[in-house]
Design a binder for these strands. Structure first.
Lengths: 96, 96
DNA sequence: TCGGCTACCTTGTAATGCATGGTACCTGGC
DNA sequence: GCCAGGTACCATGCATTACAAGGTAGCCGA
C-alpha cells in the first residue's frame, strides 16, 4: 500500500481498483480500510478530504516521511525474504 | 516447510536449525510445532517416531502426496505473488 | 541420582485478512 | 420534490497464525 502511495495521493476505492489490476494482489474494502486506519494511526500516511466531481467526497491518502522510511525498510526486508523463499522453493528466476 | 521436507524426512528441531541458516527465514519452536500439527491434521505430512542415537526419540516428518501437490500449488502461487510485489515495489531483479 | 541437554508440545496474546453490513453523499429520472 | 442506484467511507466479528512463555519427558555423564 505504501508503494502504491509513493507515486502520489490516492483514495480508497482507487487503491482497491489499482490492486485489482495486479495479478495476485486483489483485496477487498474489508481489508483495505482497516489497514489504512492502522497506517494512519501509526503516522505513516497523511489524509485529506477532497470533493469528487461526481459522488461523495473522497479521503485521499499520501505518504508521510515515516511512511516513506517504512517503505524503504520493507523493500530491503522483502528482498531478503523473497530470496530466501526462492532459495527454498528453487524458484529463483522462475517465470509465471 | 513442505519445501524443506521435499528433500527427505526431517524432525522438528532439525527443521528449526535448517531455517536458522536461511537469512530471513528464522522461526522458533512456538511457530513450528503448531504449523506441523496443522499439516498433519490436513494430511499434508506423514510422521514416524525414530530413536535418536543420543537423546529422546524424534518425530520425523515426510511429505504425503497431498503435501506434494500443495507444494506445487504453492510454488505457482508464490511466483505470481512474488512478481506482483516486485512490480509494485520496483524490486524486480534487485539483489540483496 | 541429579543436572544438563535434547526434543516435543500446549496455551495465551496480538495482529491481520476478509465477509458482512451499515451510513452517507450525489445525480438523474419521474 | 423524491427516490433509486451508484459511489465512497467505515466498523464489527470471526478465523487464522506467529510467537513468547512455559511445561513434560527421555537420555547421558559426572
Amino acid at each position: 500500500m505504501l508503494a502504491l502511495l509513493s507515486s502520489g495521493e490516492r483514495y480508497g476505492v482507487e487503491l482497491v481498483r489499482a490492486l485489482a489490476d495486479v495479478d495476485g494482489m486483489e483485496i477487498t474494502e474489508g481489508t483495505l480500510y482497516p489497514l489504512l486506519s492502522r497506517l494512519r494511526r501509526d503516522g505513516q500516511v497523511t489524509t485529506s478530504w477532497q470533493e469528487s466531481p461526481s459522488g461523495p467526497p473522497r479521503r485521499y491518502y499520501g505518504l508521510s516521511n515515516v511512511g516513506r522510511q517504512a517503505l524503504h525498510e520493507f523493500r530491503d526486508e522483502w528482498i531478503r525474504y523473497r530470496d530466501a523463499v526462492d532459495k527454498l522453493l528453487g524458484t529463483a528466476g522462475a517465470a509465471s
